[in-house]
C-alpha cells in the first residue's frame, strides 16, 4: 500500500467526518437528509476504494449496498415521508447547535486520544483511520441524543452505521463485512419501517419523539 492510496482513504474518511459535523449543524430535516446522503455516498466511494486497494472484490457488494440503499433509497424515502406528512421541517434541537458542535469537537479529540493511547507499532495510520471512524460513530450517537426528532434519530443511527462500515472496511482483510453490512441494513430498514408505521398508521402530526413516549413507565396503582 503506498502513500497515495492511504492519503486517499484518509481524505475520504476526513470528509465523512466533516459530513458528520454538517449533520450536527443542520436545523432542517431536508438538509439533514441531504447531508446524510452525501456521507453515505462518500462511504460508498471509500468502500470501493478499499476494494480496489485491498484487491477484495466482494467489498464492491458492500459499496453497492451502501450507495443504492443508504445514499439513494433511504434519503428519498425519508424525503417523501416528510412531504406526505407535511409537518414542520425544523429539527427541534435539545442542545443548542453551537454547544453541540463544541461537544462534537471534544468527542473527536477523545476518539483520537483513545486511539493514540494504543500505538500499535505497525499501524499508526490505521489507528488514525480508526479514530476517525470512532469519531463518526460518536458523532452519530450525539445526533441521536441532541435532536428530539425521529428522523434525526434514525439519521444519527445510520450515521453510526456509516462509521462502523468505514472501520470494518479499513480493517485489512476483515471477512464477513458483506454479511455484517447486510445485517445492518436490515436494522436500518426496520428503523425506517418503524418510523413509517408509527407516523403514518397512527397519523401523528408531528415527528417529535415526545409523542412516542406516552407510556413511559408504568401506571400507578
Amino acid at each position: 500500500m503506498n502513500g497515495f492510496e492511504n492519503d486517499m482513504a484518509h481524505t475520504l474518511s476526513g470528509v465523512m467526518l466533516l459530513m458528520s459535523f454538517l449533520l450536527l449543524y443542520q436545523r432542517r430535516i431536508p438538509g439533514l437528509i441531504h447531508a446524510f446522503a452525501i456521507q453515505a455516498a462518500l462511504l460508498g466511494i471509500a468502500v470501493s476504494w478499499q476494494a480496489v486497494m485491498q484487491g477484495e472484490p466482494h467489498l464492491f457488494i458492500t459499496a453497492l449496498i451502501v450507495l443504492l440503499f443508504k445514499a439513494a433509497f433511504i434519503p428519498i424515502a425519508l424525503l417523501k415521508l416528510i412531504q406526505r406528512l407535511s409537518v414542520p421541517q425544523a429539527v427541534e434541537p435539545v442542545m443548542a447547535i453551537g454547544r453541540t458542535m463544541l461537544f462534537g469537537i471534544i468527542l473527536c479529540g477523545l476518539s483520537l486520544a483513545v486511539m493514540q493511547s494504543s500505538p500499535q507499532a505497525s499501524a499508526l495510520i490505521v489507528n488514525e483511520k480508526l479514530a476517525m471512524a470512532l469519531a463518526i460513530v460518536l458523532l452519530g450517537f450525539l445526533i441521536m441524543i441532541a435532536r428530539q426528532n425521529a428522523v434525526a434519530q434514525v439519521i444519527g443511527f445510520m450515521s453510526i452505521e456509516n462509521g462502523l462500515v468505514l472501520a470494518a472496511v479499513e480493517a485489512k482483510g476483515m471477512p464477513l463485512i458483506v454479511e455484517i453490512s447486510v445485517a445492518f441494513s436490515v436494522l436500518v430498514a426496520l428503523a425506517v419501517f418503524g418510523l413509517f408505521m408509527f407516523h403514518i398508521k397512527d397519523r401523528f402530526d408531528t415527528l417529535d419523539t415526545a409523542s412516542l413516549e406516552n407510556v413511559r413507565g408504568e401506571e400507578l396503582p
Partner: peptide, 21 residues
C-alpha cells in the same frame, strides 16, 4: 423511569464516554 428514550440514549452515551475517558 419516566423519561424519553433520548435520555436513555444519553445514559448509554455518557457511560460510553466515561469509559473511553
Amino acid at each position: 423511569q419516566h423519561r424519553p428514550t433520548r435520555h436513555y440514549l444519553m445514559f448509554m452515551f455518557t457511560t460510553l464516554i466515561i469509559l473511553l475517558a
